[in-house]
Amino acid sequence: MTESGDWLLRPRRKHQYRLRPVALLLVAVAAILFQIYVPLFFHYLSYLEMPLLVTVYFSLMRREPVAGVLIGSSIGLVQDSLSHNPIGMFGIVKTLVGYFAASVSQRFDVQNTGIRFLLGFFFFFFHQFFYWVLANALLGQTLGFDALQTLVFGLLNATVAVPLFHVLDKL
C-alpha cells in the first residue's frame, strides 16, 4: 500500500509543470483553428475535439483547478462564439472538464501514457454526455445520444490525445 500511495503522490512532487503563457495561448488558438478549418476538407475530423484535448492537457499539467476552470471556460467560450449556438454551452462543459481534469491530476501520474489515454477517453465521453444533457435541459433541444458513436469517437480522440500530449510536453 505504501508503494501505491507513493505512486499516487510521486508526480505531484516531482514535475512541477510550467508552461509559458504564450505557448498556452498559441496552442489553444491552434486547436480552435484546427477545429474550424480541417473539417472543411476532412469532414469526419469534425469529431476530433482538439479544443477539448488541449483543455484536458493543460488542466492535467497545471494541476490547478482554478487554472483548469479558466482555461476550459476561455476555450469553450471562443468555441461557442464561432458556433451558431447560444454562447456558454461549450463554455460550461469545458469549464467542468478543466476543473475535474485539474482535480484528478493530483491523484494520477499524468505522464503515464495509459492514464493519458484513459483520461482522454473519459473526458471526451464526459464532454459529449454533458453537452447533451445541457442541450436538453437548457436549450430544450431533444437530441438523441448515440452512446456507441460517442464511444468510437472517444477512442479516436484518446488515440490522438496520447501523441498530442507527447508533442505538447516538448513545448
Binding site: I36, P39, Q79, L82, F90
Partner: peptide
C-alpha cells in the same frame, strides 16, 4: 472555416 461542433451547418 466551419462552425465548431460536430453537427454544425454553419
Amino acid at each position: 472555416g466551419t462552425g465548431t461542433g460536430a453537427n454544425s451547418k454553419v
